[in-house]
Design a protein around this nucleic acid. Structure first.
Lengths: 110, 110
DNA sequence: GTACATTTGTTCTACATAAAATAACAAATA
DNA sequence: TATTTGTTATTTTATGTAGAACAAATGTAC
């Protein structure tokens, strides 16, 4: 892949980071994957993809502070970068354009 | 990938098979990739993906008959299967659902 | 109150599958 | 016989996925 292309699982996770806003970290993303995308994967799969997204510059991470809730250790929270958002938009535009040109797949209203 | 998941390049090619209708074969798909998706890949990349799609049951191929135009040899024409179409629809529905729930990415009209 | 199980989390390592390039081969026509 | 239009085969790299080790905080039992 030419560096600017994004895999399908990477894209899914990037979308979920955006959707989860202030609460985008490994386990929460895994849960969202299950609930909102019917995709059950191990936590290792999520984390290695997150790392890859970060090293490609599509996402960034930082450690959260206080642990207010029970259990657990500091969370590594993720945010999307401008480059990541651009990749998502590009992907969306291409899909919309293709669907529109294929009657069998065209989306009427969203 | 869990067998029913489709990679991003596989999906793109499947979409182009649908779009090209009666004229979906290696080189034509490569050309469409370039023109309609700004994606320049070698012909080998296209063919190995087509083979993978076929072995997964998302596409089918058959050899065309007469060579009416200049040059060339018989074409291997591809069509999408019911399973392939279902995969595309599933993917589309997930994307639309996610975009809709993310204001920054929501599509107004298509 | 202190030992230990449990919960919530990340990191590390290894492997399977998908993506992509390159080169070889095949057949028709200029 | 060189060129065009095509497919097949082989190899390398990138993505996707699992599994287990490790870490820190809280719960619970005595």
């Amino acid at each position: 892949m030419g560096k600017e292309n994004i895999g399908e699982f990477e894209e899914l996770i990037l979308l979920l980071i955006l959707k989860l806003k202030e609460d985008a970290y490994g386990l929460a993303i895994r849960k969202a994957l299950k609930n909102q995308a019917e995709r059950t994967v191990t936590i290792g799969a999520v984390h290695s993809t997150l790392n890859r997204l970060e090293s490609k510059g599509f996402a960034e991470s930082y450690l959260s502070e206080a642990t207010d809730k029970r259990g657990g250790r500091r969370k590594r929270l993720f945010t999307i970068t401008a480059s990541g958002k651009k990749a998502l938009e590009k992907s969306r535009d291409l899909k919309v354009s293709l669907w529109t040109s294929i009657p069998e797949l065209a989306v009427n209203k969203i």
